[in-house]
Simulated assay, not measured.
Amino acid sequence: MSINKTVQLVLCFTLFFCVTACSDEQTQVVKAGWTKSCPNNEFCFIHPESLKSAEIQIIDSTAGKLEDDNMVVLFDLSIYASQLDDLRQAKTESVTIDDLSGTLFVQDKRIGLAIPEVNGTVRFSMLIIYKEALAEEQGKEILKSITFKQPK
């Protein structure tokens, strides 16, 4: 093989590596009927496309509410984020989400995630309330898809 072809091959591999490995964005596969949301570009998660933004009052946080006919999703990224203490009777599970320690809560028609420390004093919580029957696997899929944009 000639020197020119070798150099071209090395450049192609280097470019491919940088495009795939050097990117700040994490690749997240979104299945059909689902979409990815990134509130204030501070964290991202996947969820059914049927969930639409609903009005809530937000003070000093990245918070939101998504809703459809089947469920309500509430989230809060702030120093005041709930740690879901009101789910006292919940089945709990320790989890690691995007290299952060948290707790999953499952009680009645609710499934939630609390992360006590995302960055310094900033906490995170997401609560999914099902209007009919709990869809635990779907809820866990949403919660476990969360990724945080880490400060540089």
Rank of each mutant, 00 (worst) to 15 (best):
Gln57Ile: 04
His47Lys: 13
Val7Asp: 01
Phe105Asn: 12
Asn4Ala: 06
Glu49Ser: 12
Cys12Ser: 13
Leu51Asp: 04
Ile56Asn: 08
Leu15Cys: 08
Lys36Thr: 05
Val19Arg: 15
Glu136His: 02
Asp60Met: 06
Val95Trp: 07
Ser37Asp: 05
Val29Lys: 15
Phe43Val: 04
Ser125Ile: 09
Ala54Asn: 14
Lys149Gln: 15
Ile142Asp: 05
Leu66Trp: 02
Asp68Cys: 05
Phe75Tyr: 14
Val106Trp: 05
Ser50Arg: 15
Lys152Trp: 04
Thr14Ile: 11
Leu51Ser: 04
Lys5Cys: 07
Phe75His: 09
Asn41Leu: 07
Pro48Gln: 13
Leu104Gln: 09
Asp76Val: 06
Ala135Tyr: 08
Ile128Phe: 00
Asn70Lys: 15
Tyr80Ala: 14
Gln83Asp: 02
Asp99Leu: 11
Lys140Thr: 08
Val106Cys: 03
Ile46Leu: 06
Ala81Glu: 10
Gln83Thr: 01
Gly112Ser: 07
Lys52Ser: 08
Asn119Gly: 02
Gln83Cys: 00
Phe75Ser: 11
Arg88Met: 03
Ser2Trp: 00
Cys38Glu: 09
Lys65Arg: 14
Val73Ile: 10
Ser145Gly: 12
Lys149Cys: 08
Val30Glu: 00
Asp68Trp: 03
Ala21His: 12
Val106Tyr: 09
Asp86Ile: 11
Thr103Asp: 01
Leu74Ser: 13
Asp69Val: 09
Thr103His: 09
His47Arg: 14
Leu84Glu: 02
Asp68Phe: 01
Val10Arg: 12
Ser37Gln: 12
Thr92Ala: 04
Val30Asn: 01
Arg110Cys: 06
Val30Asp: 00
Phe17Cys: 14
Leu84Trp: 03
Glu67Gln: 10
Ser82Asn: 08
Ser61Trp: 03
Leu143Val: 05
Phe16Met: 13
Ser101Ile: 11
Ala135Pro: 04
Lys31Asp: 05
Cys38Ala: 13
Ser125Asn: 15
Gly112Val: 05
Gly64Lys: 13
Glu25Asp: 03
Ile79Gln: 13
Val72Cys: 04
Val10Glu: 05
Asn4Tyr: 08
Pro116Thr: 04
Val19Met: 11
Gln107Glu: 15
Glu42Pro: 01
Lys36Glu: 07
Val7Ala: 06
Met71Trp: 01
Phe13Arg: 15
Ile111Lys: 13
Thr6Glu: 12
Ile3Lys: 07
Val73Gln: 02
Ile97Thr: 11
Ala32Thr: 13
Ala135Glu: 15
Ala135Thr: 09
Ile97Val: 15
Ser145Tyr: 05
Cys44Ser: 11
Lys149Asn: 14
Val10Tyr: 03
Lys144Tyr: 04
Phe16Thr: 14
Glu141Asp: 12
Phe17Val: 15
Ala135Met: 14
Ile56Tyr: 00
Asn40Pro: 00
Glu55Met: 01
Ser53Lys: 15
Thr96Gly: 02
Leu104Glu: 05
Leu113Pro: 01
Tyr80Val: 14
Val72Gly: 02
Ile146Met: 14
Phe43Gln: 08
